[in-house]
């Protein structure tokens, strides 16, 4: 399942004047089922750049019935994003099929109000989700509050505006701009950040009509935390908030230390015994023992390295890719897990 497949690029399109690049993949007939996705899921890509293997996860920026597309924002001095910008149609890229638990499954007869809070390239999964709602949840409504530094850096702007024209009765779009240019005619809904005041104002302007309300957040880690805190201070229960962080989440060292442990790992039908040092993550320990398990972002964001804890306990430094309910059911991210009990059982096969 989590294997790399070579896919041919059918289109490479520069966005926002070259500051981002969209890649559209040609999925051959026999891989169509494998590459089925839910709005909000990612692809992991593997590149060889200067002889070094680089892996990155990118959210699919199209809804499930449209072509398989990712949109990569140019990062200053970013090796991978520059490499991506240099790709051409016909090139082949190695890709792990879509996965991720930050996804919106449309309910055709559901009646929901979805609030989306995004900033920067955090729009990509939200864009896919908004499309899914507008197309496949005809009785639901979507509100987007979208933060950017300035007007030129707004990703997918025309496409969002087109959605607003087409679905004006079910979709509202609000731009929040933190450093507006003096020379722009563009007047955003609000200046500043997607903070508590902006969130409260948006909800008050367009309060939920459908009462099954869901909140989707995608931006850098700090914004996610702030939006979540703001929502919870307005009585929004945890279970209705879904988020994923985007860009710049280095594994934070939260000061918790693990213990030296022996782990029994079930992988591809076989059990392996490995030793874990106190400061070693499960992924590091596996790699040190020459075992290869799926992984991608190594920062707890993508969920590729997910496994099931069957015995003992772990501490996760970062756990963006998991919902609280997953964790309650024993899910763990191996790239983030330190052992906190001396024996550990983990399973990668389910």
């Amino acid at each position: 399942m989590r294997d790399f497949h070579p896919l041919r690029l059918s289109e490479v399109r520069p966005e926002i004047e070259g500051a981002a690049t969209s890649l559209i993949f040609d999925v051959p007939q026999d891989l169509q089922a494998t590459f089925q996705w839910q709005a909000g899921q990612h692809l992991t890509l593997r590149f060889m750049i200067d002889g070094v293997e680089e892996r990155r996860s990118y959210t699919i920026s199209n809804p499930p019935w449209a072509p398989l597309r990712i949109t990569v924002k140019q990062v200053y001095k970013g090796k991978v994003s520059h490499h991506v910008a240099g790709l051409a149609p016909g090139d082949t890229v190695e890709v792990i099929p879509p996965f991720g638990s930050f996804c919106l499954t449309p309910q055709p007869m559901g009646r929901r109000t979805h609030y989306f809070f995004g900033s920067g390239s955090g729009i990509t999964p939200l864009f896919a989700m908004i499309n899914a709602v507008l197309q496949e949840e005809p009785y639901s409504v979507a509100h987007l509050i979208y933060g950017n530094a300035d007007e030129p850096s707004i990703l997918l702007r025309e496409e969002l505006e087109a959605l607003q024209d087409r679905h004006g009765d079910r979709f509202t779009l609000r731009h929040v701009i933190s450093s507006p240019s003096m020379w722009s005619w563009f007047s955003p809904w609000r200046k500043g950040r997607v903070d508590k005041d902006a969130i409260a104002a948006a909800i008050e302007e367009t309060p939920p009509e459908a009462q099954d309300v869901q909140y989707w957040i995608c931006g850098p880690g700090a914004m996610n935390r702030d939006v979540k805190t703001a929502l919870m201070s307005m009585d929004v229960p945890d279970t209705r908030i879904h988020m994923e962080s985007f860009g710049g989440t280095e594994a934070e060292n939260d000061g918790v230390t693990g213990v030296k442990a022996t782990a029994t790992v079930r992988l591809d039908g076989a059990d392996h015994q490995i030793a874990m040092a106190a400061d070693q993550t499960l992924l590091q320990a596996l790699q040190a023992n020459g075992l290869s398990v799926p992984y991608s972002c190594q920062s707890g964001v993508c969920g590729a390295c997910r496994c099931q804890v069957t015995e003992g306990t772990v501490h996760m430094r970062n756990r963006m890719a998991l919902e609280d309910a997953d964790i309650a059911n024993g899910a763990a991210l191996s790239c983030q897990s330190l052992a906190t009990s001396e024996t550990l059982g983990v399973n990668f096969d389910r």
Binding site: M109, Y139, Q211, D212
Partner: peptide
């Protein structure tokens, strides 16, 4: 509880068929 055409509706079941 849900809203339809400006009217409030309640259902005793926490997971009833939606108003849609």
């Amino acid at each position: 509880v849900d809203v339809w055409r400006g009217m409030l509706f309640v259902h005793p079941d926490p997971n009833p068929p939606s108003l849609a």
